[in-house]
């Protein structure tokens, strides 16, 4: 019996597609909700700095004067915490992971959000 079992396994292995993903040639396996890296949309950011407070590894720096939002990709643990708490949904999670690099660096995004003339919200953003 064991012989037939072996033949069956061997035949199946020959006939079916290999499971290996030929990675650099083929695309990587990804799902729509895979956590890759955080993307910042400068046109919606109100500089509330909730993401800075909620980041468990303090990877985000927000400079209100210079209007920049910086993230250290080599400190971000891709936990989705900032995306969950962002009140204006200016942060989103992209499925593409950060590429390996030979040097560490900080990525900078510019905040282009301009406060609407009616000052309703209590944010510190200069108009």
């Amino acid at each position: 019996m064991a012989f037939f079992e072996m033949v069956r396994t061997a035949l199946r292995t020959v006939l079916q597609q290999p499971v290996t993903i030929l990675y650099p040639a083929q695309a990587a396996k990804k799902t729509p909700i895979s956590r890759g890296h955080v993307v910042h949309d400068g046109s919606k950011c109100i500089s509330c700095s909730i993401c800075v407070k909620k980041c468990p590894s303090q990877a985000i720096i927000l400079n209100k004067e210079a209007k920049t939002w910086q993230i250290d990709r080599f400190r971000c643990v891709v936990c989705n915490s900032c995306v969950d708490t962002c009140p204006t949904k200016c942060l989103s999670m992209d499925t593409q992971y950060t590429a390996p690099a030979a040097a560490k660096g900080i990525e900078t995004f510019t905040i282009t959000y301009v406060k609407p003339p009616k000052p309703e919200k209590k944010d510190e953003q200069k108009p």
Binding site: Y23, P24, T98, P100
Partner: peptide, 25 residues
Amino acid sequence: VDVWVPGCAARPESIIDGVVTALGI
């Protein structure tokens, strides 16, 4: 260190990329 592979946890594809970069170095 020559190559940094980010990710928590780093994905296998990321690790392959990192090793390929390392091969160049």
